[in-house]
């Protein structure tokens, strides 16, 4: 037995039999008690029974303002956008709100699953908005703003009225109106450590089937949609990759500007051809096409931050990027953001 496991064993022996709440701190000089302020700073989770939910409130109207400023660029004004993330709102009915089951699933006519069609616990939304939103500045909303934004989303789904004020006092009532609140099951074998499987194949070895039917094959467009497969396989060995069409091998031909843009994290907010939180690079190039001072002005926008040019969301100063890299990035953007 190693010295360490002896230490561990004696520590376990010292604090008595398992089952009861035990003493803490078995490793001399390893770890320490957390202070109450430290626990408060990090223990931000909110459970379905609302344990952990801080007091506060927010109106649908206030939520609409916060939404337009901080959320709409990714999620769309009405939470319907499918441009950056899957839609938050849509696909639920008054009847769903009454029954707690989303009818679109049962009828099988849901083109896409939105967040409000899926979520069964309103605490989930509060917790996630609070811990992870907005996309480019997580944990920056006040508690009241989280209540307000959530109230706005719930109103878009007709779960609460337009004049509603959501608060820690009434959120349990809102829970009773979530469209998919009765749509979850934990009766399956993939959760409990001793859970039972739901498929039962048998390991037949000989003459297991009389005929084999091709049910699905790879469509030609899908074969070509992943670049040149020959470039994704080794050039020696048992096999070679097939040459496929597509738009070439992204890795082999990538423009240095794309690599720099990604490595500096620009792609979190800007797409080449599509806006995310900020504008598309190619839209920037279009706007500044005839502007001789564009380069120096845009270098300044990146280094010092800017706002008001493309919407309500300001671009934070990117002080971590070197001058040379900023200049290279701006030149790449103004040249039309070539991808290879």
């Amino acid at each position: 037995m190693s010295r360490f496991s002896e230490l561990l064993l004696s520590a376990v022996l010292l604090c008595g039999s398992p089952g009861a709440a035990e003493a803490a701190g078995h490793f001399p000089n390893l770890g320490r008690a957390a202070t109450p302020d430290e626990v408060k700073a990090w223990d931000i989770d909110v459970r379905p029974d609302f344990k952990g939910l801080p007091p506060g409130s927010g109106t649908v109207a206030h939520g609409a303002d916060v939404w337009e400023a901080k959320c709409a660029s990714c999620h769309g004004t009405f939470g319907e956008s499918n441009e950056v993330f899957t839609p938050l709102v849509g696909g639920t009915t008054k009847e769903d709100i009454e029954t707690g089951r989303v009818g679109a699933y049962i009828r099988g006519d849901a083109p896409q699953r939105t967040t409000l069609m899926k979520v069964a616990t309103v605490s989930t939304l509060w917790d996630y908005i609070n811990r992870a939103m907005p996309w480019n500045a997580p944990k920056s909303l006040t508690h009241d703003e989280v209540y307000a934004v959530l109230a706005y989303i719930l109103n878009l789904g007709d779960i609460v009225p337009a004049d509603f004020t959501l608060s820690d006092k009434n959120i349990a009532d809102v829970q009773k109106r979530l469209p998919n609140r009765n749509g979850m099951t934990t009766k399956h074998g993939l959760w409990d450590i001793k859970g039972k499987p739901d498929t039962k194949n048998v390991a037949c070895m000989k003459n297991c089937t009389s005929h084999v039917t091709l049910a699905s094959s790879l469509p030609e467009y899908a074969r070509d949609a992943h670049g040149d497969l020959a470039e994704q396989n080794r050039k020696v060995g048992a096999v070679r990759g097939q040459h496929t069409g597509g738009d070439g091998d992204a890795v082999a031909t990538v423009n240095p500007g794309v690599a720099l843009m990604k490595s500096q994290g620009c792609s979190g907010c800007h797409g080449i051809g599509n806006g995310i939180v900020g504008p598309a690079f190619r839209d920037v190039a279009k706007r500044y096409k005839n502007d001789k001072d564009a380069e120096s002005r845009l270098v300044g926008h990146v280094k010092n931050g800017s706002g008001g040019n493309w919407g309500d969301i300001a671009m934070p100063a990117q002080t971590q990027v070197s001058d040379a890299d900023v200049t290279a990035l701006i030149r790449w953007i103004l040249s039309g953001s070539p991808e290879n």
């Binding site: 379905p48 989930t124 979850m184 934990t186 074998g189 993939l190 959760w191 859970g195």
Partner: peptide, 29 residues
């Protein structure tokens, strides 16, 4: 109690033919 966090209440839930979602599916068979 389980927490029903975003990635166990909105994503990583398994839609079944009867329209229910399996929640807390975890094991890789």
């Amino acid at each position: 109690q389980p927490w029903a966090t975003k990635d166990e209440a909105v994503h990583y839930i398994d839609l079944l033919p009867d329209g229910t979602h399996r929640q807390y599916t975890s094991l890789q068979e």
